[in-house]
């Protein structure tokens, strides 16, 4: 087990180094003049000034020298200045992270619970009407680009019915949070509201979360349902399930205690894919719902050519994904002893 983890950990630096080389590669795709523009607040008036900036920051140096200099800055946490957020990129990442984390954590609950439940249900009713209905439901979700789904929800539940507003909190809550006695522990409003004992704030934050959370979950259900369903079908055919049945165990126990537990093993490998879906989905969902998190910040930056922000965000995503995949792989080996032997 330990050998497996060590082996996996050894690959990690290689991947991370590759990721930085790649990000820098994208960065150096811009010519020195464009990059010079990223270092200064105002556009220099004379061409001389531009040349001076290029010389000062060494933007014409050989590429490996520039990469080394850049990497040194990154390791020290200097990602540059985010024009969109009007603060350093690293600080902005910290500033927007709680909002996105709150959204992602809330979304994880319906994604996992409903996705797995529908998958099991679908497998138990294999090729019967319920199976077909859930599959169509999931396939429609899979075919919905999240921003289309989001727009349609906004049209019905915000513009028409006024039930769920976009954004993150209402104005009166903003005043409360900034000026009042409301203490911010985690930056996640639902959690902080509970810690402060403010149910009204909690309700308001939740009301804003419902639509983005549903959007994020619906597009993920299809993926989870498909894997759970086929894995469950496979498991139900195993001989030990037949043994359990012939022992006279109740169907409920056979399904949930004997079959479902083993069927969950392949589902665990989905963790990485679900994380990718979440990271991608957050950009679009936050943009549609005007939810002030990492995704909306990065999307705005991308359209305004705020390259340093975009690169910082991408690097952050890549590190998160690499770490996430590592954890999933290790968990997989923990759950299923057969993996370690390979």
């Amino acid at each position: 087990m330990l050998a497996y983890i060590v082996r996996r950990l050894m690959v990690l630096p290689v991947i991370l180094l590759g990721v930085t080389v790649f990000i820098f590669g994208i960065f150096s795709f811009l010519d020195p003049k464009m990059r010079a523009g990223l270092y200064v607040k105002d556009i220099p008036k004379s061409p001389d000034a531009l040349q001076r900036i290029i010389a000062k920051y060494g933007l014409d140096d050989p590429i490996h020298v520039q990469y080394w200099r850049w990497l040194n800055q990154i390791v020290r946490g200097n990602f540059g200045w985010s024009k969109t957020a009007q603060r350093p990129v690293l600080q902005a990442l910290g500033h927007y992270f709680p909002a996105t984390a709150e959204l992602a954590l809330w979304a994880a609950i319906p994604v996992l619970v409903v996705g797995v439940w529908l998958g099991i249900l679908s497998a138990l009713h294999h090729n019967r009407p319920l199976d077909h209905t859930t599959r169509v439901f999931a396939l429609v979700g899979w075919s919905f680009p999240s921003f289309v789904y989001g727009l349609l929800m906004l049209m019905v539940f915000y513009a028409m019915l006024k039930w769920f507003p976009p954004g993150r909190i209402s104005d009166w809550v903003t005043r409360e949070v900034i000026g009042g006695t409301f203490k911010q522990y985690s930056g996640m409003y639902t959690l902080d509201a509970l810690l402060n004992g403010r149910l009204d704030v909690f309700a308001d934050a939740l009301r804003h979360l419902i639509m983005p959370v549903l959007t994020l979950s619906y597009i993920q259900w299809a993926l989870l349902l498909r894997v759970t369903r086929s894995s469950m079908l496979e498991t139900l055919r195993q001989e030990y399930v037949m043994t359990a049945r012939s022992k006279g165990l109740k169907e409920r126990i056979v399904v949930y205690k004997h079959a479902a537990r083993n069927a969950m093993i392949p589902v665990a490998t989905m963790g990485g894919l679900l994380l990718v879906g979440l990271l991608n989905g957050v950009v679009l969902t936050e943009t549609v719902f005007n939810y002030p998190g990492l995704g909306r910040w990065a999307a705005t930056a991308a359209t305004q050519l705020d390259i340093l922000t975009v690169l910082g965000f991408t690097l952050f995503n890549a590190v998160l994904l690499v770490a996430g995949n590592l954890i999933v792989d290790i968990l997989y080996a923990v759950i299923d002893p057969r993996i370690r032997l390979e």
Partner: peptide, 19 residues
């Protein structure tokens, strides 16, 4: 593996912004 280390849409968004 390195290409897979980036979430697809995020990476494409970055690339499009730089291009």
């Amino acid at each position: 593996d390195i290409f897979f280390a980036f979430p697809f849409l995020v990476a494409a968004m970055t690339m499009a912004a730089v291009l």
